[in-house]
Amino acid sequence: MDATQWDERYRASAGGVWATQPPAVVREIAGALAPGSAIDVATGDGRTALWLAQRGWTTTGIDFSSAGLALAAARPGGDAVSWVRADVHEFEPAASVDLVVSCYLHLRDNAAAIARIAEWVAVGGTLVVIGHDVDNIAAGGHGPSDPAILYTPELLRGALDDRFRIERCEQVTRGTGDSELRDGHAQPAIDTVLHAVRVR
Rank of each mutant, 00 (worst) to 15 (best):
D98E: 15
I190V: 14
A72D: 02
S82R: 12
L155S: 15
F164V: 01
R11C: 00
W57H: 03
D2R: 08
A115F: 13
T43H: 01
A67E: 15
Q21R: 09
P23T: 12
D45F: 06
A95W: 04
E92V: 15
N110V: 11
V199W: 07
P93Q: 13
D135M: 08
D109G: 10
D146K: 10
D87I: 11
V17N: 02
E92P: 09
E8G: 03
A30P: 06
V129H: 06
I62N: 00
R165T: 13
T48R: 02
L127C: 02
V199R: 15
G124N: 05
D40T: 04
H132I: 03
Q187C: 13
P144L: 06
G44S: 06
S66C: 10
L69H: 08
V172P: 09
H185F: 15
M1V: 14
A74N: 05
Q171V: 09
H142K: 10
G46L: 07
G68F: 09
G16A: 01
D98K: 02
V128C: 06
R47L: 00
H89W: 06
N110K: 04
R157Y: 09
P22K: 04
G44Q: 06
R198G: 08
T152L: 01
I117W: 13
G131A: 09
T176L: 05
P35G: 01
V128N: 02
A38T: 05
A42N: 08
R168P: 05
A3M: 07
S96W: 05
V134L: 09
I166H: 10
L71V: 11
A32G: 13
S179C: 07
I190Q: 10
A186L: 11
L156D: 08
A94V: 13
H185W: 07
A30M: 11
L50V: 04
D191M: 09
A186V: 13
G78H: 03
D63C: 01
G143L: 10
A38S: 04
A74S: 11
L181H: 13
P153E: 10
I166Y: 09
R157F: 03
A30Y: 07
V134S: 08
S13L: 01
V121N: 00
E8H: 09
G77V: 06
A19P: 13
L181Q: 14
V129Q: 09
R85N: 05
A138L: 08
G61P: 03
A30R: 12
R157C: 06
R163V: 00
V193K: 07
D2E: 06
I29A: 13
W6K: 00
L99V: 08
F164S: 02
R27V: 00
